[in-house]
Structures are given as C-alpha cells and as structure tokens.
Nucleic acid binder design. Structure first.
Lengths: 241, 241
DNA sequence: GCGGCTCTTTGCGCGGGAGCAAACGCTCAG
DNA sequence: CTGAGCGTTTGCTCCCGCGCAAAGAGCCGC
C-alpha cells in the first residue's frame, strides 16, 4: 500500500497495549490505510465482514439507527481511538454506521487478519476483553442515566463526558474539539434538538457555556458538573472528586 | 464444599462452549457452591474481588443503582445463566447488585481461579469476548429504545424479551416464569410503576395480557409484538376509536 | 456580492407521563 | 379467622419536554 503507517501510532491504543516492538511491527504490517472524506461513511450498519479500524486523523461519529429511522449517537471517535472492533466478535456485521465528520485517515484490518493477529498475540484478545467490558459498563451507565434522569442533567453529563474525551483548554474555558451540532447532542441524550438548543441558550445566558454553530466552549466546568451531579448550585466551588 | 456440582450443568453455558470433557471437569473442580435464600444478595455493587457466577437454580435480578438511589434492572438471570463475569475484566469491583428473587443455588469461581482457567483454556477467553460483545449490543439496543420510543412500546418490548428469555407455554398464552413486580418492569423500561400498572390494565381490558401480583401471562403475543414493533394492529385487535 | 443551504433560535400549544395520594386486595403470620 | 403488610390499581393534577412552525444567522459555492 502506498501509505505505510508509523508503528508509533499504535502506541497508546489499549488494544495493543503490552505488545513488544516486534509484535507491533507485525500488527502494522497487516494494516491497510485509507482516506475518508468528510461526510462519507467508513462503514454502514449491517455491512458484512467487519474488521478493525483505528483512526489516525479526523473525527468519526458512530450512529445506530432503528427500524423507524430514529438515530442514537453511540460514540464519538478521535485520533488514536479504535472503532468497529465490536462486530468481529459478534457475528461479523457492523451494528452501527461510522460517518466521518471531518476528513479522516484510518488504518484497518480485515476480520481474517485480525483473528490471525489475535492468535499470534493472545494479549490482544485479553486487551479486547477489557475494552469491551469497559464499554459495556459505560453504555450501562448511559442507560441508567437516560432511564432515570431529566433532560437538563443528561445534557450536562454528555457535555462533561465530551470535555473529558475531547476537551481542549482555551483561555477562560474548555473547548469541545469536535464538530458538534445540537442534533448530535440530542441523539446522545435521548431528546430533541429543540430542547438542546433551549438548554444551551439558558446556560449561555448564565455564562456557563458559549456556543456557536457546531461548536461549544465550556466557561464554567464546575457549574456544569454541579448540574450533572445535581449538586447545590455553588457559585464558585471545586467539587470534591 | 458439601455440594459438588454435576459437570453437566456447564453444558449449554456459552462461556464454556467447545471445551472437552476433561476441561469441563477442570472447570467444575475449581467451583464453589452456595445457597442463597430469597431476598438476599449474591453480591453488591462495589464489592471487591469480583469472580464468576453461574446460577444452578432459582432466579436472580441484576440491579444497578445510581448515586441518588434510582435503580435500573439490567438483567434477569435464570438457571444455567452466568452473571457477575463482567467485573473480572474491568477492574474487579461489581458494577451492580445481584439479588435473589427466589431461593437460589449458584456456583462461583474466584477471580484468581477464573484467570487461571482462562490461561489454561484460552477458548474460555474467546467465548467471553463473544458473550460480552453480544451483551454490549443488547444494551445498546435498549439504550436506543429508551432514548427514542414511547413508554407503551418500551414496556411491550420488555415483555417480549422476557417471554423469549423466560417464557413458558401454558393453555391460551405464554407465562413469564419469573417473579415480576410492576416496579421491576418500570426499572427495566425507564418509567414508573404507576405507568406500568396503567398500561397493563389497558392491555388486560383488551385481552392481550393477564396479570396478577408478581405474575404476567401473555394471551396474545402477536398483539404485543405489534405494539413493540409499531406494526398495524392485526385482524382481531380492537379498533382504536 | 448574491442566493441558497444548513444549523440554530424561539414562540406557542398540547399531551404524555410523572408525582401524589388514597383505596383495594392478595398473602401470609399468628 | 383476623390483622398487618406489601403490591397493585386508579383518580387527579401538573409540568416537562415534544412537535410544529417560522424567523434568524453563519457558511457555502457561484
């Protein structure tokens, strides 16, 4: 292939944690590289022959659609993260769409090579187990959240998670470094874009956030956390933990 | 120790699928057996040293509670099913409560022995991967459901799932063979026991279900599926206005 | 610069379903 | 048999958040 990825990109990927340099080289040798222009799909829900994907550059959104067309944003992927790996262990068809929200570069492995890699380096299978287990817990937490909490709190929590995942410090605040529409947030929290817009407007008038088209900056992270955790509305306090 | 489980109980457990008789005997040899009286916990959310559990007899409910005390029923476990295994791969503390809703007998393995078993029989790790992956997909589906669908449909879907898992054919209908309160259903679907009660009452007056205390019988499964899938009401359904 | 497109904001009205409270009824202990 | 306790039913009220609609605001290509 024209593009041969640098083995260094695999560093920090939990799936390949604990592998020695030789093993990493082996993993990289099997990988293919691909450019994915903004707005196109990396793979589609129901596609056969699921393999493994790792994002080198850009942003990818994992969206699951129901029979009625209703969508839910399952994950947002940034450089260095893996995606689409779940399908390999559960029958081979992708359970969701992966769409590039900016121009992307990804490396990928076919299901066959991935299986071979896991046999040659059993450590990968154990890593996968830990990763999938953790993902399961996260989804369970989201399920509990959406089942028991009000909309405002869910939106706050979603933003807090986004900050943790894609937050970038800027002068007076933290920027969410991800193209993020109101519709996206709605599909992450089980509400409508209208309610998200209203909520953000309210927060903006309180100086908690500042948002523009596809773009959000958190001005008072502690206030957002207070809403997410349902703490008393302290004016300026550092929440314990 | 008095109780030495029959290796046959492991048959049909996906986690041990594909193991030969000798390996199964090895697995059984490491297991401990325990009786758990109705109403008590097998393990509690946050407990350290998570191991693996398999239910021999009885019924167990897996419940996750949030900081505010709000609960969500994650799974219902019947004989032959495994539970509590997730925690082994993700840090060692149980993410939910497991409470016996009837007198139970379970076998269990400590985290250490389970790890050793997985090293001795790598097939177990691969099985675990498939199981956790499938569970993740199921939870994602529930998340989508609770995020996008109305209450009546969610309740219908929950009952359909319960029928699949613990359904028992009886004369004119299918019985859900599991002690099931309105509160339980509410905690599975993200609503309140009041709404569940009202919904079941409405269905009962339409002859779709028949319910009493902790007990539900589905009289017209097809009608329930129609509600769950939002299909046009079938032939004998009572017309709406 | 102009027009069109997408994303966003905001007003308005309504309804699904939560919350509260009270009564009913099955089960079981004594 | 009697009483206590828990699960269930049902009425009533209220309001959060959805749905609809229309206007505003960046951003694009031409």
């Amino acid at each position: 292939m024209a593009l041969t990825p640098d083995p260094a990109v695999l560093h920090g990927m939990p799936l390949f944690a604990g592998l020695d340099g030789e093993a990493l080289a082996d993993v990289v040798r099997q990988a293919g590289t691909r450019r994915v222009p903004k707005g196109t799909q990396v793979f589609a829900q129901g596609d056969e022959g699921a393999g493994g994907h790792a994002l080198i550059d850009g942003r990818v959104k994992i969206v699951q659609a129901g029979a009625d067309g209703q969508q839910v944003v399952m994950r947002l992927i940034g450089p260095g993260e893996m995606f689409g790996t779940l399908a390999m262990f559960t029958g081979g068809t992708y359970p969701a769409d992966a769409v590039a929200v900016s121009d992307c570069v990804e490396i990928h492995w076919s299901a066959a090579t991935m299986t071979a890699l896991m046999e040659r380096h059993p450590r990968i299978a154990l890593n996968a187990l830990a990763i999938v287990g953790q993902r399961l817990q996260e989804v369970q937490n989201r399920l509990r959240e959406v089942s028991t909490q009000r909309v405002e709190r869910r939106i706050a929590h979603a933003l807090v998670r986004l900050v943790r995942q894609a937050g970038r410090r800027v002068e007076d605040g933290v920027e969410i470094d991800f193209p993020l529409s109101r519709q996206d947030v709605a599909e992450m929290t089980g509400t409508t874009l209208h309610t998200v817009s209203r909520t953000l407007s309210a927060w903006e008038s309180q100086g908690i956030v500042e948002s523009s088209r596809q773009h959000v900056v958190i001005r008072k992270p502690h206030a957002l956390i207070a809403i997410a955790e349902d703490l008393p509305p302290t004016t300026e306090a550092t929440p314990k933990d």
